[in-house]
Design a protein around this nucleic acid. Structure first.
Lengths: 128, 128
DNA sequence: CGGTATCCTGCAGGATACTG
DNA sequence: CAGTATCCTGCAGGATACCG
């Protein structure tokens, strides 16, 4: 049985809705930030340390977008030194499951994909 | 119960594996092409017509990448005029399910996200 | 500590023209 | 019909410096 009847969800409006979301969560850091926040409430600096390679700028931008979309809650504690904590909202948490589905697929098929790439390269170099 | 134990799949190697795949499938057209190919075997021109807005160049590039990764099979028929047909491989088909999971999440939460964005904008303009 | 502001670069992807 | 080849542009995202 084909899944064709359901892929209209992807093709739907020419893919605009889905791609607007995909563009958002695929922007290099979003999914990583969400996954890191799945452990609970985390401070800005802790996030910065736990996500290797992210710049302060990109962490801020990513968190702002997530906050704007209602996936992450930002709490500022009126203390000195300042303390700002981030946590997933219910909607943010609900993203974890489908993200894991995709991550699972990725990890499961990486060997196949890499093998296919090498075979493709070899076939290409044989052609010239 | 938290999903924290599982999010290591996302955070795993600093997210490199997952992001390599995500970068690949999030590149604006890949998922749309895969979803369109879920109907079966489709010719190049038919794909071009069925995916509004895609250029010949991007369709070709997207298909080449999918073929290289073993998600799509390309069949050239020795005829004139030429006929080239594309179809999902088993691995390509297996991507549909997790993609649908994500698409489902996206469609389900678009209203919430858009409402959150508007609220965020209003709060911002109130601040100045 | 938790950010902004600014500058800079690579490259995804569009437009267009040509081809076996 | 099914592509290449080439040029061009916007903008994601990195580096760095400054700020309340």
């Amino acid at each position: 049985m084909s899944e064709y009847e359901h892929t209209c969800m992807i093709r739907g409006d020419g893919g605009k809705t889905l791609r607007a979301i995909l563009d958002q969560i695929c922007n290099k850091w979003t999914l990583l930030v969400v996954a890191t926040l799945d452990q609970g409430t985390v401070r800005f600096t802790d996030l910065h340390h736990q996500i290797p390679g992210i710049s302060q700028r990109m962490l801020t931008l990513t968190l702002r977008n997530l906050e704007r979309d209602g996936l992450v809650a930002r709490t500022v504690h009126a203390e000195v030194p300042p303390r700002v904590e981030y946590a997933l909202t219910a909607v943010g948490k609900s993203l974890i499951a489908p993200a894991l589905a995709l991550a699972g697929w990725a990890i499961e098929h990486v060997p196949h994909i890499e093998a296919s790439r090498e075979a493709y390269l070899r076939a290409g170099s044989r052609r010239g």
